[in-house]
């Protein structure tokens, strides 16, 4: 069979993957201009952190990391509900989703 059938994956690879995803999410948060996309980048960052929680949970052979991940999911759900309601209201009031246009406090 293929050479990599045997052997496991170093734990650090999972953590580095989580770091890469977090960095991508952060960069998207900075460069995108559509509120919904920005919001999705936040979700991506939360997911990346979840991965590191589950990995640490594996590392210490404890379930606590899973519980924290579970809480993050619940909070993300609450955040999405409120956040999307806010986005809907903003769109009704201003007719745009570009975050640069929603700057009436500036003037």
């Amino acid at each position: 069979m293929l050479p990599f059938v045997q052997g496991g994956v170093p734990i650090s690879w999972y953590l580095i993957l989580s770091a890469i995803l977090f960095a991508i999410g952060a960069s998207g948060f900075l460069i995108r201009r559509n509120i919904i996309t920005v919001f999705m980048c936040i979700e991506l960052m939360l997911n990346a952190v979840n991965l590191s929680f589950v990995t640490f949970s594996y590392m210490w052979r404890q379930v606590d990391g899973h519980i924290i991940t579970f809480f993050v999911m619940v909070v993300a759900a609450a955040e999405a509900a409120v956040g999307l309601a806010i986005i809907l209201t903003i769109f009704k009031n201003r007719g745009t989703l570009q975050i640069d246009r929603i700057n009436s406090l500036k003037n």
Partner: peptide
Amino acid sequence: SVVMLDVAPPSQEV
């Protein structure tokens, strides 16, 4: 990544 490699040395495997 440097921090992660420090926390979890590559000897530990999944």
